[in-house]
């Protein structure tokens, strides 16, 4: 189960490692619970799970500071938990309840938190890319040094608007980190079947944008690359691209039987490169934690997730009158 390569003597403290372990484990257990609730009919509509990709958001959040913004696609639960949004509010939105972040009117793909600077949750593939550049525009306009993490997948990377956004982001030196979460499958279409230019980050060169490829199963490598990208943006040097090689264990959505890849392919990555197992291994071999310590963490996280699930069942459904609110801003009196 353990990572094959010995982890290099990373410049990371015990507390940091434990934090990454907890953050990634929370996402995984939360997503497993969401899958279960979906199977029970408590979550309807679309539901895209993040299992396998946890190190991407946890690593990048470790490179962020207060005030930084994030925006992503519809596979968004992990991003919300990683930036500190309340698991109860997220789960209750999944079940379409009043206690959800969008009062039950957004669902799995559309949640927002001004407080945590999380700007969605967008269902149109790649739309979040110019939106993210626009968030970065707002920070540059205001003259602060905040950075926006704009996440999108390998599928979105073939959309034209990504390159319109690249062009303007570089032209105007916008402080945006374009994060390509390359999980190798755009729904059921592998990268091999969708492009002959599979090194997505290199496409930025056409617009003068620097970038690099990152091992997205290794949270420390993601954090390191994130810090580099963020420093570039904060120094006023414009955007930066991180193509993070990751893998989703589950199907595209709940209804995906995943016939486009083999069981063995998925199992091999789970066995050899799992991001959570890698950190667990580091914690144990580095004697930062005992098996018992980790069991205690597991237990603690399970209870957080169970509480979220309970809350998401107990919170009432929104009233019918909610259909007619929040369409226009109420005029200020």
């Amino acid at each position: 189960m353990a990572a094959k390569k010995p982890a290099k003597k990373a410049n990371v403290s015990k507390d940091e490692l434990l934090q990454y372990y907890k953050d990634m484990l929370l996402i995984r257990r939360f997503e497993e619970k969401a899958g279960q609730l979906y199977g029970m009919g408590l979550i309807g509509g679309f539901c895209h799970l993040y299992i396998g990709q946890e190190a991407v958001v946890v690593g990048l959040e470790a490179a962020a500071k207060e005030g930084d913004k994030r925006i992503t696609s519809y596979r968004d639960h992990g991003h919300m938990l990683a930036c500190g949004m309340d698991p109860k509010g997220v789960m209750a939105e999944l079940t379409g309840r009043e206690g959800g972040y969008s009062k039950g009117k957004g669902g799995s793909m559309h949640m927002f938190s001004k407080e945590k600077h999380f700007y969605g949750g967008h269902g149109i593939v790649a739309a979040q890319v110019p939106l993210g550049a626009g968030l970065a525009f707002s920070d540059k306009y205001k003259g602060n040094d905040n950075v926006t993490f704009t996440y999108f997948g390998d599928g979105a990377a073939n959309q034209g608007q990504v390159y319109e956004a690249y062009n303007m982001a570089e032209l105007w030196d916008l402080p945006v980190v374009f994060v390509i979460e390359n999980n190798q499958y755009a729904m059921g279409t592998s990268t091999k079947r969708s492009t002959k230019s599979p090194s997505y980050w290199e496409r930025g060169a056409a617009y003068g944008i620097e970038g690099e490829e990152v091992d997205g199963m290794d949270v420390l490598k993601v954090k390191e690359a994130g810090e580099k990208a963020v420093a570039h943006c904060r120094a006023g040097k414009g955007p930066y691209i991180l193509e993070i090689k990751t893998y989703r264990y589950r199907g595209h959505s709940m209804s995906d039987p995943a016939k486009y890849r083999t069981r063995e392919e998925v199992q091999k990555i789970r066995d050899e490169r799992d991001p959570i197992e890698q950190v667990r291994d580091m914690l144990l071999t580095g004697k930062h934690a005992s098996e018992d310590d980790l069991k205690a963490i597991d237990k603690e996280i399970k209870s957080v997730v169970n509480e979220a699930a309970e809350f998401s069942k107990e919170s009432p459904e929104p009233g019918l009158d909610e259909l007619y609110t929040d369409i226009y801003m109420e005029a200020e009196a």
């Binding site: 110019p130 550049a133 608007q161 032209l171």
Partner: peptide
């Protein structure tokens, strides 16, 4: 800073405009 010429790229700059509105402008 406040009157900005864009490239001919309606899809992109409309998106940047909406993002800037999300960001408080």
């Amino acid at each position: 800073r406040r009157v900005i010429d864009t490239p001919i790229t309606e899809h992109g700059f409309a998106g940047i405009g909406v993002g800037a509105a999300f960001g408080g402008l």
